[in-house]
Nucleic acid binder design. Structure first.
Lengths: 213, 213, 213, 213
DNA sequence: AATGAATGAGCATTCATTCAT
DNA sequence: TATGAATGAATGCTCATTCAT
């Protein structure tokens, strides 16, 4: 946020870019990639259609500029959790809370991200697909680090850390989807809290089992 | 005119219909609804473009013929699990196994289903949206029944059955997504088995806790 | 109607042909040439789509089979009027009455005919266009004969008989169109009667003028 | 921003619009609504197919833009005739002359108008149909006013004014059709003059009859 | 004779992208 | 920079016509 050095050449351009991104996010998340039109995005941003192409060279690039931003935020969160001091459970707890807040703060981003993943490979250019897969790999790796620590600390059962992290990720994403589909019938915060309490329960049980039993 | 039992009116037409469905499944699951074209589907099936419209009156109808089939299969599984005799854990175990087999057997169907859920509902006609929501409701209801039984039997923690079933569904769907995205880096069978072992663990622990501990 | 000699080879075929014509008339007159479909005509006739092509080799030919029939009936009427004994006014009077009855009897035919004329040249194959123009020429010629007689008899003003017949034809067709467009707001019988009374009035005035003054 | 009187916002756009209308008129009047294609119209105008949709949102809208223009011109003529000072015969005479000139000036418009009337109304959207019927009603009403005056002045026989105006309209339209079908065999100007002379004749005869005779 | 499944040319319309101003 | 008019490839769908049975 704080920009000390590396000042951009043109603050006006930056502003416009933000306005476009805002508009694009709104339209893409509401309609999905295919049904969103460049015209509508430009209109929403209050600019002419042609101007969009001064900032991004294609619809696809604009789309991925948003996706990239979302991914970076999420990845940063997971990596920050991994590098924090404290027990694995503490890390997971902090991460769960932060992720939930991120989701609620940027619901449109979540929808966008989800839709994009469903489009999958064939829809987009190889360069973007690669970038995407790279991001997923990094996220899983960071998460796996935490899970490994948890297994070592005995707060998660001694299963393959990679699969455990896949399950964790799956659980979070699965609940996210239900919340995105119909937030009135599934409250993500409550779901996440329930999930966290399971984790703690598993941790306590596991410890008791390993120390006393 | 005289129709012996189970004889279809026109076996050739039925065959063709199957061929078209096969082709449509392939194309839709690979490209999603919007990027799939009727031409490509027809070509894939080895017929002319217009012929498709002899069997289905629109792209949407063809699409939902597939979706419907998938849904019915899945729903049948969950409802059958719910109506089986035995403990809740046994039901869940059986269901998990069957679902996994279903997924492996019809991977393209899964992809199709997932992509469909990422589409904005406004994409489709109200009649289909309604049908869709009805299916989801029924599935959740059946699952909730099993989960309620599990809570009563003490094999799941005494939490809200609805949220528990959402979590379960989320977990399964979350893992499904990872498997769909890259089956080489996540084996769904192994993931499901791991999840089932957690369930069993929870069940045993819970029982022990409630009886003695 | 009465067919004594010249029996057709196949009475069943004749019957079918009539059924098809009936259906075609209904559909064409209701929807016009372009919006009518061969499928609907066949369905209306209670036969399969392909069968139509056993009787007519194209949509166009079927259409003109109907047009031709209408034209022949009309032409016959005019020619019969021309060859009757009696004064020109009597001929016109008889003809007017018969035409009106024909119109009321075959309203669908009229609609069809009108629509066809509006489609005009470019729509149809040269052979049919030629046939059409030939029919119009013959009709006008017959009418012109009667009008010439009327002028000679002094019951129509001494103007160019060709233009007089064009006017007469125009008047009849113009009223026909209004009746076809909305029969509830224009009663063709009443219009024709009014027109006939004008003719008689002109005739009497003309005679009085020429004889007495 | 500051717009001097009568200045259009965009003269270039207006020009293009005219070019398109010109082309559309040519194609529609030659082929009718159904057989005319947007591609051909665009080609005729020397633009790309998609550009048409910048100016009109559909084929139908473009079509009715032309129809509307024609109707307004005709209606204006009739209403102006009705509100002129002078006798009914003078009004009819002036109107007849103006209409003839209008027809000769915009022959394509006439063809267009005629073809349109032969289309089934169901072809078009309700809004346009309504607009259309409203126009017809207003035209008939204005004409009826003049005819009523003529009857009162004794220059037309004492018949129902509504039917008289229908006959007049029918006569004009009937002659118009013949002229449109083949201008070389029927000169509309001559036909109209002949019709006018009949009117005058009727008027004089009527007056003589009513005054003394 | 009769059929109905198959075909593919044809059309209205959309929309990402370009480019002259 | 900014624009919006222009473009044309792409697509869902229709329907006259054919043809194997």
């Amino acid at each position: 946020m704080a920009k000390t050095l590396g000042m951009r050449k043109n603050p006006v351009k930056d502003e416009r870019e933000q306005a476009f991104k805002q508009a694009a996010l709104k339209v893409f998340s509401a309609k999905g990639y295919h049904r969103a039109t460049m015209s509508e995005i430009a209109l929403e941003a209050g600019f002419g259609k042609g101007t969009l192409y001064w900032y991004w060279k294609s619809k696809e690039e604009l789309y991925f500029a948003l996706i990239r931003q979302m991914h970076e935020e999420f990845l940063q969160l997971v990596e920050e959790a991994a590098s924090r001091p404290g027990s694995a459970l503490e890390k997971l707890g902090w991460m769960g809370g932060e992720i939930t807040e991120l989701y609620y703060r940027d619901r449109d981003f979540c929808k966008l991200s989800w839709k994009m993943r469903a489009e999958e490979l064939e829809t987009f250019s190889p360069q973007y697909v690669e970038e995407l897969q790279d991001y997923i790999k990094r996220t899983k790796r960071a998460l796996e680090g935490i899970v490994k620590q948890a297994v070592e600390e005995g707060s998660l059962p001694p299963a393959d850390p990679y699969y455990l992290s896949c399950m964790l990720l799956g659980l979070v994403e699965g609940m996210e989807i239900q919340w995105l589909e119909d937030p009135s019938s599934f409250d993500l915060r409550r779901g996440m809290e329930l999930a966290m309490s399971f984790l703690l329960f598993l941790g306590e049980t596991g410890k008791r089992a390993s120390t006393g039993g």
